[in-house]
């Protein structure tokens, strides 16, 4: 929790990390990603979190689902292409069982993408989320980031439904 003497966070990753802490999201599973590196590094440096990499995004969803059902809130972090491996497990596990699995996806495949494969995969992401009724918000602005992150996370737990925050290159700066 932020103490009165702490200055409010000023980077997107510090804002997101604080939103997780404010909502008692302690378990962070991820498949590594360059854009998410400052977020993941900050989480590893903070003893509040239990954080580790997974071999595949599907298992990360399974781990967070199990932890959530046993009383520990968690989030899965990944890149756009990793998200595209998830429709079956999202549909049959956190959506079917109504378990609030949070996701953060760093958006690749848009605004200057050089890899055609990434560009096509990126177009599948929002339709997949929409088709399952998974609330998603794309974070593009620093001044909105804290509100968007906190409220999305809060709603996921209040409504017992997965939710996804998409980190736009507009916010992250992304790859050169």
């Amino acid at each position: 929790m932020t103490s009165a003497t702490d200055a409010p966070p000023t980077t997107w990753h510090a804002i997101l990390r604080q939103a997780l802490k404010d909502n008692d999201v302690r378990l962070v599973t991820y498949v590594p990603d360059n854009v998410l590196r400052p977020l993941i590094d900050g989480i590893h440096a903070d003893p509040f979190f239990t954080a580790f990499p997974c071999a595949r995004e599907e298992e990360a969803v399974g781990i967070v689902t199990g932890a959530s059902m046993a009383g520990m809130r968690g989030i899965v972090m990944m890149q756009t292409s990793g998200f595209a491996t998830l429709p079956n497990v999202l549909a049959s596990l956190p959506v079917a069982f109504q378990v609030p699995v949070l996701m953060v996806v760093s958006e690749r495949g848009t605004m200057g993408e050089f890899n055609p494969g990434q560009a096509i995969v990126c177009r599948t992401m929002r339709p997949i989320l929409d088709s399952m009724g998974i609330e998603h918000h794309t974070m593009t602005r620093l001044d909105e980031a804290a509100f968007m992150a906190d409220r999305t996370i809060r709603q996921a737990f209040a409504t017992r439904w997965p939710a996804c925050l998409i980190i736009s290159p507009l916010l992250s700066g992304a790859r050169k």
Partner: peptide, 22 residues
């Protein structure tokens, strides 16, 4: 007991998540 109804292959990850939480 928890009965998984889809997500083939995820019994061990789900169990691992429970083990972390408790």
């Amino acid at each position: 007991n928890f009965y998984m109804l889809g997500s083939m292959g995820l019994a061990a990850p789900i169990a691992f998540g429970v083990a972390i939480a408790q």
